[in-house]
Simulated scan of single mutants.
Amino acid sequence: MNPVVETILSHRSIRDFEEKKLTKEQIETIIRCAQAASTSSFLQAYSIIGVTDEEKKARLAEIASNQRHVAKNGHLFVFCADLYRHRIAFEMEGEQAVKNLESTELFMVALIDAALAAQNAALAAESMGLGICYIGSLRNDLEEVSRILDLPDFVLPLFGLTVGYPAKINEQKPRLALEHIYHENGYEKDKNKYIEQLRAYNETVRSYYRKRTGGLRADTWTGQAVKTLMKNERLYVHDYIKKKGFNKI
């Protein structure tokens, strides 16, 4: 197995970091790797905010459900969908079609560009012996995150990425079976097959949690997923992304 595949397949989220900051060289390498990701139509419709100010990190940790590793890590990156520079490009080229930036298509382009860049950054960090954790809970209050980071219109914070030296490494969570994710030449819609596969996966996940917690937890994947999806979380996001200039048409 080559080292790249080995690094990918050994991924797990790290939430306990040593009190050791990343070097400037490490940060720049991670950013350059992020920039090497594929980008739709060469638009590069994302930006990355590095947060080193301890007060800002502490405030972002509060927003992110008081997760300690958001404040205590080697470095905190915030990935943003970004069409601000494209609005400037319209001005530079003497064009008036800025409204085009408000389309759902360009919103999706910016989201996908940011996600691809982030995964490159995560893989680069892990290949350097560092640990990472994505922080989606910054979306608990995007307006406050935008204020803290002084983000203009057409720049939307999507998620954080904490990076650092692992102080503790948990057992890897089991993923869905390959045949449940990969469909060949069309989507597999056999409900009975789906249920059979999910029941098998539930047992795998239940065993994982029992082992990890010494029998204190026995969650299933379907139970956990439904519990999450039953919450009416972050419903404000629909209106907020439009307020920032995205996804209007």
Rank of each mutant, 00 (worst) to 15 (best):
R139G: 04
E196H: 13
F90K: 03
N66L: 06
Y187F: 15
N140S: 00
N100Y: 11
S137Y: 08
A125F: 06
A200N: 10
A61K: 01
R87Y: 09
E188M: 13
G160Y: 04
P152V: 09
H75D: 04
M108A: 10
S103D: 03
F159R: 02
R206S: 12
N192R: 14
T104A: 09
Q67V: 05
N100G: 14
N185A: 15
S137A: 15
H180W: 12
P157A: 04
N73T: 07
P152G: 11
P174M: 01
F107M: 12
V205W: 02
L116V: 09
A97D: 15
A114V: 06
G94L: 04
H180V: 08
L178R: 14
N100D: 11
D141T: 03
P157F: 01
S127A: 12
L178W: 15
G129I: 00
Y182W: 15
E184H: 14
I132L: 08
N185D: 15
E143R: 00
L178K: 15
N73Q: 05
V145T: 07
L101N: 06
A81D: 06
L60E: 00
A89M: 11
E105H: 10
F90I: 04
I88F: 07
Q67I: 02
L76Q: 00
L156Y: 10
E95C: 04
L151E: 01
L149V: 00
V98T: 09
C133A: 11
E62F: 07
Y84T: 07
T204C: 13
L142A: 09
V109F: 01
A118R: 07
A117R: 09
L161M: 13
E179Q: 15
Y134N: 04
L83F: 04
Y165F: 12
A71Y: 06
L151W: 00
V109Q: 06
N140F: 00
I181S: 13
Q67R: 02
I181D: 12
F107A: 12
E62M: 08
Q119D: 08
D150I: 07
L138C: 08
C80D: 02
N192V: 14
C80A: 07
A71E: 07
L123H: 10
L151M: 01
V109H: 05
A97G: 13
